[in-house]
């Protein structure tokens, strides 16, 4: 299990991580959810011993990320945000290379990667640089898993990947988890957050709301309204101009409105929008989803 305690890290005047503490349990699929620049990659670099924190410490099954970095690197699989395999090597050569670096044979752990790798196995002789985005991700995951790590660290594995490949990738993660691997994954996709056992929101170097996705949704006290009108394109800005509105953003075919007041009613919002010359106004309360919770949390922090 993983214990992160009071990590601080600055780059010059920029405080990238500010007193970050959380724990990841054995065999958990843990999601780190936050915007670009929140500190996710810095946290990962510290976690996997590539960077030293200014203060605080990280323990992975009792191993210290600074003192025991050699031991830690053997039990970690890391998939960076940027595709980092050798583009000139073939699919098979990349896999062989990573296996040999970790001193294992591909056959030993093939079962662990089989579900992922069988999709790209037919392209074994193709240079990795010539694969499609979805296939590159599958190869990178295979290479990160080939030494059967205890902890898999994935930095935005599905950014730029289409909806179908994204779903397949998460199905693969479930298989990996069933094999006993603990995984930490950073993602900007909020629908993926809902697939994690527990998640943490990270923003401006602070961690908050570490909980199951279900509990985070349950704990949100703001009422969320879904608003539709004839003028969908100007609607977000109009909604933000209403009194007592905390946030208003497009959500698929509606605008989601979070109110500061807890006693706000759909009827009054509708009336106010009609006064602003909106036509065909529909307002109804909806249950918040993770994405609403994230936006509210970020707003609250400001």
């Amino acid at each position: 299990m993983i214990k992160v305690r009071n990590i601080c890290k600055s780059f010059g005047a920029v405080r990238a991580l500010n007193d970050v503490s959380f724990e990841v349990r054995e065999n958990e699929l843990f999601g780190l959810i936050g915007p670009d620049g929140a500190g996710k990659s810095t946290l990962f670099h510290i976690l996997i011993s590539l960077m030293k924190p200014d203060s605080g410490d990280v323990a992975l099954w009792g191993l210290d990320s600074v003192r025991d970095y050699r031991a830690i690197r053997k039990i970690i699989g890391y998939m960076p945000g940027k595709f980092s395999l050798y583009e000139d090597l073939t699919v098979e050569e990349n896999l062989q290379f990573f296996a040999s670096v970790f001193g294992v044979r591909v056959e030993e752990n093939y079962r662990l990667i089989e579900d992922v790798y069988r999709h790209i196995a037919p392209f074994g002789k193709r240079p990795a640089g010539k694969l499609s985005g979805g296939m590159k991700q599958k190869l990178a995951l295979s290479c990160a898993l080939i030494h059967k790590p205890r902890l898999l660290v994935l930095d935005e594995p599905t950014t730029g990947v289409d909806a179908v490949s994204r779903k397949e990738f998460w199905d693969n993660l479930k298989t990996v988890r069933q094999a006993g691997v603990t995984a930490i994954v950073a993602t900007p996709y909020m629908d993926e957050a809902a697939l994690c056992d527990r998640i943490a929101f990270i923003n401006n170097g602070h961690i908050f709301s570490v909980d199951t996705p279900q509990n985070i949704v349950k704990r949100t006290t703001q009422r969320i309204f879904a608003v539709r009108a004839a003028n969908m394109r100007t609607l977000p800005a109009l909604c933000r101009s209403l009194p007592g509105v905390m946030a208003a953003y497009s959500f698929g075919d509606a605008v989601h409105l979070a109110m500061n007041r807890h006693d706000a009613e759909a009827g009054e919002i509708r009336q106010q929008l009609i006064c602003l010359a909106c036509e065909k106004v529909e307002v109804k309360t909806v249950a918040p989803i993770i994405e609403d919770c994230f936006i509210i949390t970020v707003k609250n922090q400001k």
Binding site: G34, D36, A38, G81, G160, P188, Y249
Partner: peptide
């Protein structure tokens, strides 16, 4: 908007 957070995306 690839890789951009929910608020910035919107």
């Amino acid at each position: 908007t690839s890789g951009v957070d929910p608020v910035t995306r919107r």
